[in-house]
């Protein structure tokens, strides 16, 4: 979606240049801030799921 948005912004950015530049900057920020988190989140899910199933009820006690 973001790629499509950026391409659209690049292609359309003549009528309201500032608007489309904001779209590009927002897309750039999303990629650098949010998208990079997907790797660590995937790792978190994959590495912890096996341990989750191995936990005993008593393991939750203090």
């Amino acid at each position: 979606m973001w790629t499509r948005s950026a391409v659209t912004a690049l292609e359309s950015g003549t009528e309201d240049k500032a608007f489309y530049e904001r779209k590009l900057k927002t897309a750039q920020f999303y990629m650098s801030y949010w998208t990079v988190q997907t790797r660590s989140l995937r790792k978190q899910v994959e590495s912890s799921s096996e341990l989750m199933t191995q936990l005993e009820e008593a393991d939750f006690d203090l």
Binding site: W2, T26, F29, Y33
Partner: peptide, 20 residues
């Protein structure tokens, strides 16, 4: 700025996904 842009970019992405 970081907090605001994180929120703004998330909202814009969410709006695109919801529209799709």
């Amino acid at each position: 700025r970081r907090m605001l842009m994180a929120q703004k970019s998330f909202n814009e992405g969410a709006r695109a996904l919801i529209g799709q």
